[in-house]
Nucleic acid binder design. Structure first.
Lengths: 127, 127
DNA sequence: TTTTTATTTGACTGATTGGTCAAATAAAGG
DNA sequence: CCTTTATTTGACCAATCAGTCAAATAAAAA
């Protein structure tokens, strides 16, 4: 019943996540998200409710699907969103508790260095 | 000659650095910096030229004095500033090259986890 | 076909952003 | 004291921000 959605939510969340990773949360405007998804503001707000809703949806999906984007979004969350958004703080906390990765700190650190263009991501770290 | 500065630049840079660390670069407005330093916009701009100038001055000082704030500012730089500011990219790059810390990635990762309130900073990491 | 429901469209808003600048103020030199 | 130089003050500005909403559109239900 009613009109059909004209886009694939998973693809849109992928695009949103990539933009948040490359520009940060506060460095990304809703206008930026409009341009990168090809949707209009109204559709984005109708679907996700708010900018924080867009971020949370992208973060949830990346964690749920264990996407590689997960690390970037979790880092952005910890540095820019956690302190002002309880829902995100909870999500990150829950992820951390369920975490099995051997050395999370090192994994995160290398993602940060890669974002800063100091190392190439995915390169095997020499002892 | 001329009027004397009414503030201590080192103290102001310390305050600015702390705010950038806790709120991120784009999450911190010049109004925020005005409030936290007690100076007025005009004085901040007369001294540092721009918001980026304020960040760079705080980053340079923290690296030069090897302040503990160094890690937080370098992380904010890598995630939010490096990609749009060549001067900051150069500063971060130069720091990385001169770097001697054994496992930088792990050090950075733990600072990120601490910012996200997932671990306590300075706690000795159990194997 | 008509009604009902869901989505799209994009113009609009009030608040906040980084940055400017003329006037006021204070210190030193003559 | 008067001039010169440096800093402070805070009102102001255009641009951008996140968010809203009435109207248009499209699909299913009756």
């Amino acid at each position: 019943m009613g009109r059909k959605k004209s886009f694939n939510t998973d693809i849109v969340l992928e695009q949103i996540g990539q933009l948040f990773i490359s520009q940060g949360y506060n460095g990304t405007s809703v206008d930026d998200l409009v341009k990168c998804t090809g949707l209009l503001r109204g559709s984005l707000y109708a679907t996700f409710g708010s900018k924080q809703g867009m971020f949370i949806a992208a973060l949830k999906r990346s964690v749920a699907t264990d996407s590689p984007a997960k690390w970037g979004l979790l880092i952005v969350a910890m540095l820019e969103v956690t302190s002002t958004n309880q829902k995100v703080a909870q999500l990150v906390h829950d992820w951390y508790q369920a975490q099995q990765t051997e050395n999370i700190a090192e994994e995160i650190g290398r993602a940060v260095l890669a974002q800063g263009q100091l190392i190439d991501e995915g390169v095997n770290h020499g002892k």
